[in-house]
């Protein structure tokens, strides 16, 4: 297991358990949820024939999402996520040292399964992707349109707090101008991002 993940995850789990213990012995779960705010730790993995998959060692990152429940089944909101990556194969990317990849999406979600404590959801996001690159001393960036699909599993530990795991699939359509034979390779990237975090419920 990644050491930075360990350093982050176990203190978070202790924090959550302390919060839950601080609540009533038998928590009452209020079903009238207005919204949710989630913060999670992201473990990204690129795949496919594109420059991120072929040239990067992606590092872990952070994802923040806020959702408003418009009905019991449907939610809308936004999510922001970022992670970093070091270039391991200069042949595939060009002379870039490292990059910070940021996504911002407007998201809509649907509850496939929802009980008082458990929830399984799927979602779709439409938004913007930005790749900030660091060359030796200067910076450059790529950006473009992005689509995110996700499925998430949540578990309420208490009335106002829970934990969740989410798998995002980012499809980025970057506006990179390059040789025709490299167009798809640079313009379309696909990244899976597994995230684990805590969720706060607002009533």
């Amino acid at each position: 297991m990644n050491s930075s993940f360990r350093n982050w995850f176990w203190p978070l789990l202790c924090f959550c358990s302390m919060l839950v213990r601080g609540q009533k012995e038998k928590p009452v779960f209020d079903d009238d949820i207005l919204g949710e705010i989630g913060v999670s730790y992201v473990l990204p993995q690129a795949w496919g024939d594109n420059f991120v998959s072929k040239g990067y060692d992606l590092k872990n990152g952070l994802n923040v999402e806020g959702l408003v429940l418009i009905t019991k089944k449907w939610q809308v909101g936004a999510q922001y996520g970022y992670f970093k990556g070091n270039v391991t194969n200069i042949d595939a990317v060009g002379a870039i040292l490292s990059s910070r990849i940021t996504h911002i999406h407007a998201v809509g979600g649907y509850s496939i399964l929802g009980t008082t404590k458990f929830g399984i959801r799927t979602g779709l996001g439409i938004g913007y992707a930005k790749y900030n690159h660091k060359q030796s001393t200067t910076k450059l960036m790529d950006d473009g349109f992005s689509i995110a699909t996700n499925v998430s599993f949540s578990y309420r530990l208490g009335n106002s707090m829970g934990i969740y795991a989410k798998l995002d699939h980012y499809w980025d359509f970057l506006s990179i101008d390059t040789a025709p034979e490299l167009t798809d390779y640079f313009r379309r990237t696909q990244i899976f991002a597994l995230s684990i975090g805590i969720k706060f419920y607002v009533f």
Partner: peptide, 12 residues
């Protein structure tokens, strides 16, 4: 004062 690079561009 130094080389700069175009955004959204790669050369072959």
């Amino acid at each position: 004062c130094e080389l700069t690079y175009e955004d959204n561009r790669r050369l072959l």
